[in-house]
Design a protein around this nucleic acid. Sequence first.
DNA 1: GTATACACGTGAAGC
DNA 2: TGCTTCACGTGTATA
Lengths: 237, 237
Amino acid sequence: MENIGDEYKLYWETTTFLQTEEIDSWGLDEALSGYYDSSSPDGAQSSAASKNIVAERDRRKKLNERLFALRSVVPNISKMDKASIIKDAIDYIQELHDQERRIQAEILELESGKICDSEEEIPALLRSKKKKIDQTFDSGESRASPIEDLELGVSYVGENTVVVSVTCSKRRDTMVKLCEAFESLNLKIITANITAVSGRLLKTVFVQAEEEERDHLKIQIETAIAALNDRENSVSL
Amino acid sequence: MENIGDEYKLYWETTTFLQTEEIDSWGLDEALSGYYDSSSPDGAQSSAASKNIVAERDRRKKLNERLFALRSVVPNISKMDKASIIKDAIDYIQELHDQERRIQAEILELESGKICDSEEEIPALLRSKKKKIDQTFDSGESRASPIEDLELGVSYVGENTVVVSVTCSKRRDTMVKLCEAFESLNLKIITANITAVSGRLLKTVFVQAEEEERDHLKIQIETAIAALNDRENSVSL
DNA sequence: GTATACACGTGAAGC
DNA sequence: TGCTTCACGTGTATA
């Protein structure tokens, strides 16, 4: 019935991203040209129906983009599931609430004992927080630099082993981001290696996976990295 | 739990709840009792179809419940639109991120600034945030593990070059943390390499530095890593 | 083989 | 009126 299925083998968000534009392009043409209602005698009604179709398609697309954007601002995404994405977002927000509540408790305590002549007055929690700032002050500026000039190779080398090879230009936190991207995927990593030299960054990962998972793995990695870049650039989608 | 939804009784989530429950009640009965209703020649296929529609109905219901829950943890919901709910959640999460960063900057300033005119040190920023957060649930759970079994070697190899070698046990985010620790030090890194294999993690960094900086460098790195472990133990992030 | 998750088109309901 | 948003059933792909 449908010819979309040719490239339709991958997971929803990637298919959405990679394909919605294409689909929508010819989908819109299809809708405008009235291809599917050739049996209906009424042209005006079919036009209205076509408009409805394209509107609905657009609505779905927007919703998926939003969902993808939501996923990109939530770390530790367990599953790519739509419902799971929302669930993880809820958990994450509650976690942030909890954390903020504790910090404010500390600040209240700090505020009540006003004389903070030296470091003795700062509770241990804040001190550790401070050290966290120290090491995230530059790396914690999460809007810094995206991962650029990326080249990704995935190849099956036998023994249920897939070798992933990534090169990109080395920016401020590229190494951290790249590690995060791979950690988030929960792969069965046999051995991994990152090397930074002369402005470039090379990462090689041996992953335990069947050959059939190869393409899926590549899409997964691309998606994770794209999500990282997305998180940097776009705030409102 | 919710008082916001009462005002929007005409909107989609309430109608959804009322409808889905009713529909699901008889829909489920229909699905359970529907095996004798075999107008189609293949009874198994119609049964599968019924299962599919009840499953799909259930999926939609779950997704709406999640969306409803997401809305309930996000304050200042502008519109009750599905897409808008997700958008507001995204904005809220990024707002929390931003707050956290600023609060940490405040704390840093508060601690490092020995001059403690304690009125000014707690700016309006923190107060407003304090009032903003009223609802919190608890999901306190630290998910990251500290850097353990650490061995650190620093040696001068000539040509203003110091080689830093780190080994530790590989936990969930050790690789990320280690990278963060090194990034935070702003070293003049000539080349760096991380390898993960069989539960261990090995990092080698060539740093441009004089021989005299060797010991200082070692202390710096130790401090950065200790700070990482510190933040794990005290606060769940 | 079942179970799960998705996109699609469609009719309806509220601005 | 038209525009937007929704739930629904269906076909299909993935695990």
